[in-house]
Simulated assay, not measured.
Amino acid sequence: MTRGSDDAVVRSWQTDEGWGVLDCPSTPGGCWAHFSAIDAEGFRSLTVGDRVRLQWEHGDQDGYAFRAVRIQTN
């Protein structure tokens, strides 16, 4: 399975459902992200426009060709 990392921007985030989409040059079409991939303690959420460090892998997830493995906030 192909993996990579890149700087990304949060395109959308559904706080009540705990997932969203991140955009970066390495993941055309967007990268699906789940709150469990956010590298933080306690309640984990992102805000549209946040800049993050993204580790991703190829994998079909809810119509996206990429999914987040780890998300580090600044």
Rank of each mutant, 00 (worst) to 15 (best):
W13P: 02
V21S: 00
R3G: 14
Q61L: 05
R51L: 11
F66Q: 09
D6Q: 13
D16F: 01
G49I: 02
H58K: 15
R70N: 07
V69S: 01
D16M: 07
V52H: 03
Q55Y: 14
G42I: 04
S12E: 12
W13Q: 03
R44N: 05
G42C: 00
S45Q: 12
P28T: 00
I71P: 00
D23C: 06
Q72K: 12
R3L: 13
V69L: 12
F43I: 06
C24E: 06
G42L: 01
R67D: 04
T47S: 15
R70K: 11
V52W: 05
F43N: 04
D6C: 15
T15A: 15
W19H: 06
D6I: 10
V10A: 09
T15W: 05
V9E: 14
Y64M: 00
Y64R: 04
D6F: 09
W56Q: 13
T47G: 11
R11Y: 10
R53W: 10
W56I: 11
G59H: 06
D23W: 05
R67L: 11
G29R: 00
G30E: 06
Q72W: 11
G63H: 01
V48N: 13
P25A: 09
V10I: 11
V21K: 01
R51C: 07
L54D: 08
D16I: 05
D60K: 01
R70H: 07
